[in-house]
Design a binder for these strands. Structure first.
Length: 291
DNA sequence: ATGCCTGAAGGGTTCAGA
């Protein structure tokens, strides 16, 4: 197996994102792509993208539903042992399409869309925590060669939001959520983007409203969490901000990680991404307010 | 003061997102 490029992207409706997704695949040429918020049934996904993805040599594992949620894995380095959903995970009230995993090029890849939580201490927030506990159980079986990719809906630390004060009392930053994420990482998973950019301002999500992207007022909630044998192979790890620009973007940017070939080979030099994120903090700014 | 954008379903408006 040669080097492998793994990407994850919450596309916020694959149907709306086709004009951005296909050119992005052609430009970035990822080997494995984890998608979230596809918002399509599996049949609709196949009708919409089956031919386009086959033309690009991708095999696909989809786990979707109408209207909301939906995850997928695209791979051109093999795709087997597909598992739909998360065994034992709670529903709200019924199981939702928030996880799919497959073995791609010898790597156990998990694409996840963690529940939002809505409001701390709500039923949905409890659902989020319980769902994360189930995810931990799944990963615990074999964390070393596993990579969990997706929209975690948790900012790991205060450095992962543009202004911690703006998030007081909000989901995504509460101690129980961060503890659940830390427990997942305690299985041996590395947050490879933060490890690569320990002191940089790095976000993956910016609200559509109020010019938040233009001002770089965002959050880092889309993560690539790699098991030890994979984390040691990371050559590059970066957020593809270009995909958040222009017309008709998702509100999330893709995260791209390149792994060196051969687990027993030498680790190559760390190559910077095309554009390193700027090291600066935004001024105080309120969040767009909920109704 | 404000759901400030966007997407989806469904129906002329509402919910969800983070």
């Amino acid at each position: 197996m040669g080097s492998v490029r793994i990407a994850t992207w919450n596309v916020n409706s694959v149907k709306q994102r086709v004009p951005r997704l296909l050119p992005w695949l052609d430009e970035r040429r990822p080997d494995v792509v984890c998608l979230q918020e596809t918002k399509l049934t599996d049949d609709a996904f196949a009708d919409l993208l089956g031919d386009e993805l086959a033309d690009r040599a991708y095999t696909v594992a989809v786990h979707g539903e109408a209207t909301w949620n939906g995850v997928a894995i695209l791979s051109r380095v093999g795709l087997d042992d597909v598992v739909l959903g998360l065994a034992g995970a709670p529903g709200f009230p019924h199981p939702e399409a928030r996880a799919v995993s497959a073995r791609c090029g010898g790597i156990r890849v998990v694409s996840v869309y963690v529940p939002n939580g809505r409001v701390p201490d709500s039923e949905h927030y409890q659902y989020k925590l319980a769902w994360l506990a189930s995810l931990r159980e799944l990963v615990a079986a074999a964390p070393e060669a596993t990579v969990v990719c997706g929209d975690m809906n948790i900012a790991p630390t205060d450095d992962d939001v543009f202004d911690p004060d703006a998030y007081i009392g909000q989901t995504h930053v509460t101690p129980p959520e961060r503890a659940a994420l830390a427990e997942l990482q305690a299985l041996g998973l590395c947050d490879v983007v933060r490890d690569r950019w320990p002191n940089e301002r790095v976000f993956t999500y910016w609200d559509y409203r109020a010019g938040m992207f233009h001002q770089d007022l965002g959050m880092r909630i889309d993560l690539v969490l790699a098991g030890a044998t994979l984390a040691g192979r990371v050559r590059a790890a970066w957020v593809d901000r270009q995909a958040r620009k222009g017309s008709g973007p998702s509100d999330h940017a893709p995260v791209i990680v390149d792994l060196d070939e051969a687990p027993d080979g030498d680790i190559g030099p760390v190559v910077p991404p095309p554009s390193a994120p700027a090291a600066r903090r935004g001024s105080a700014k309120k969040l767009p307010q909920s109704r």
